[in-house]
């Protein structure tokens, strides 16, 4: 099997592979978020009885991880590839291993291991059991059976797989510095993103106006609460506000203006929003059970 030679080959191969397994190939969500699990196609669709299968790339923002473009593998903006399957198929581990074969990681040449690593997102009130997947000692994916989201049981349980695309590509391309990755045959990753890493690191750590951000947080929180109050039950617009609040909190955290004790309180506030959105979602047509072909 040929290796995915470039960064975009890797993405295209995964897209094709998971499409062939019946996944909807969705596009990235258009809000800043810290991980693919924040995409409503994961957070909200993990809940409720309806079957769901989706795969997508999600740009992930981790303001605190910015290193002004100087660190070999830390980025404040990177790509995750996320697969979510509900109910989790019995052979989901095999499906995953086949995806590795598809991108050119042959388990007969490598040492692939499933090492205990349970996932928890305090901001989403979510947790699951699973593993980090190791290839020759390197973590290349996170594999989780979701048990709860927003404090609600996932029933049926879904399986979720996250590939860290840059890290995986660095391994496949045998590159030590992320900016040296071939994005395609003509462009390097650095040409696409290095400027952004420098600028956003400065923004995240030094420049972002914290008064404005504090106000953003409050506004998003207020709007979110309003959208799920009374009989409105506008779960999806409300959840957008929850995502915004979460990212705003991450920015404030990167600016170093949130103390240790406040930190826990902010996380609890976002969790309360996520919980309210999930609750509202479970009341919607898509979140409730309605026969699929009826």
């Amino acid at each position: 099997m040929p290796k995915a030679k470039t960064f975009q080959d890797l993405i295209l191969t995964l897209q094709n592979y998971w499409a062939s397994k019946g996944c909807l190939i969705l596009q990235p969500y258009d809000d800043n978020m810290g991980a693919g699990t924040f995409h409503p196609a994961t957070t909200l669709r993990a809940l409720g009885p309806r079957p769901w299968r989706a795969a997508f790339v999600q740009p992930s923002r981790r303001p605190k991880d910015g290193r002004y473009g100087e660190n070999p593998n830390r980025l404040q903006h990177y790509y995750q590839y996320q697969v979510i399957m509900k109910p989790a198929p019995a052979d989901i581990q095999d499906l995953y291993l086949d995806s590795l074969r598809a991108i050119g990681l042959d388990p007969m040449q490598h040492d692939i291991r499933f090492v205990e690593d349970d996932w928890e997102s305090p901001t989403l009130g979510a947790w699951g059991l699973g593993w980090e997947v190791w290839c020759d000692g390197m973590e290349i994916s996170q594999f989780t059976y979701f048990q709860q989201v927003g404090g609600f049981d996932c029933d049926p349980v879904c399986g979720e797989i996250t590939y860290g695309l840059e890290r995986l590509a660095m391994y496949i391309q045998d590159v030590e510095f992320v900016y040296d990755l071939k994005f395609n045959e003509d462009f390097r990753y650095g040409e696409v993103f290095h400027q952004a890493e420098k600028e956003f690191s400065a923004y995240n750590f030094e420049v972002a106006d914290t008064d404005i951000l504090f106000q953003h947080f409050k506004d998003a929180e207020k709007q979110c609460q309003e959208l799920v109050s009374g009989n409105k039950k506008l779960a999806l617009p409300a959840y957008d506000q929850c995502i915004k609040a979460s990212h705003t909190f991450n920015l404030l955290d990167a600016r170093g203006v949130i103390s240790v004790t406040e930190r826990a309180a902010y996380i609890a506030r976002v969790r309360a929003l996520a919980k309210a959105c999930c609750e509202a979602w479970l009341e919607t047509e898509q979140g409730r059970y309605t026969p699929r072909f009826g």
């Binding site: 490598h110 020759d136 390197m138 030590e176």
Partner: peptide
Amino acid sequence: KTIVAGNERVLRA
């Protein structure tokens, strides 16, 4: 060989 090379790489990081 591949496995050792991979592990050495991870260790380097």
